[in-house]
């Protein structure tokens, strides 16, 4: 059954890849025709900031594939009449989605590197393999957590996966944006607590590793994966036991 999800993922990656390619071509054309929009300076930045920023590539792909399993709620006659356990079907869908998100993440990383190379600022980054690896783990984990939370909420609301995936962007951005707003204590506490289920809050200030959550980076890395796994297990459980 994961064949359907493979086709869905292929379609998402095609259009996503096309947009990224256009971005690279526009940058190249701009540089080629002598109108670079970025000027070289003396400042440097950690390459890990690019690594973690590629999270948004994974998140974009997660948005499109996150509702894939949920979309099957209207096709139980096909999906649930296969000689395979429903939870096994669901995990296979998830496996396809995870690979798709990883590809999306990698494509975004390659695109950002290509764009910075084209405009000639790639040498202004400082490279620390260990730090980049940690940020890669965090970024990928946050993208997977994003996907898992979409899957979980969508599993509760069959047929509304697309809406939930779209709203996830607004929700996750708003949650970290208003975390320091002077709300009354109960509301402030609630918003602060919600930060713990916001993948963006685990990233911290890009490149400087200043966390929005008072947790060490290894803990944050462990938590994004743990939340992703728990949320995915929950969504599989909800999907495979619900009634059509």
């Amino acid at each position: 059954m994961e064949y359907v999800e493979i086709l869905r993922a292929r379609r998402v990656l095609f259009w996503y890849g096309l947009v990224l390619l256009v971005q690279v071509l526009i940058t190249a054309a701009t540089v080629f025709f002598g109108h670079p929009s970025v000027h070289r300076g003396n400042s440097t930045a950690h390459f890990s900031s690019i690594v973690v920023a590629a999270l948004f590539g994974g998140a974009i792909v997660a948005t499109f594939v996150g509702a894939g399993l949920n979309a099957e709620s209207g096709r139980t006659a096909i999906v649930w009449t296969r000689p395979k356990a429903r939870d096994a079907i669901a995990w296979r869908y998830i496996a396809v989605d995870v690979v798709t998100i990883l590809i999306g993440y990698a494509l975004m990383l390659v695109t950002v590197v290509a764009v910075t190379a084209i405009i000639g600022i790639l040498d202004q980054f400082t490279y620390d393999v260990a730090q980049s690896a940690r940020f890669l783990a965090l970024g990928v984990g946050a993208a997977l957590m994003w996907y898992a939370l979409i899957s979980l909420v969508a599993a509760r609301l069959p047929g509304r996966g697309g809406l939930i995936a779209g709203l996830s962007w607004a929700a996750f951005i708003v949650i970290i944006a208003v975390r320091e707003a002077p709300f009354p204590l109960p509301l402030h506490a609630l918003i602060y607590a919600l930060n713990y289920i916001d993948p963006l809050a685990y990233i911290g200030a890009t490149g400087t590793d200043q966390p929005l959550l008072p947790l060490a980076q290894p803990v944050r890395i462990a938590m994004v994966y743990a939340i992703a796994i728990v949320a995915l297990a929950g969504s599989v459980r909800l999907w495979s036991t619900r009634e059509a």
């Binding site: 009449t81 296969r82 000689p83």
Partner: peptide
Amino acid sequence: PQTFEHLGYV
């Protein structure tokens, strides 16, 4: 699940 190896549904 194995029932669906020999069960068709429209």
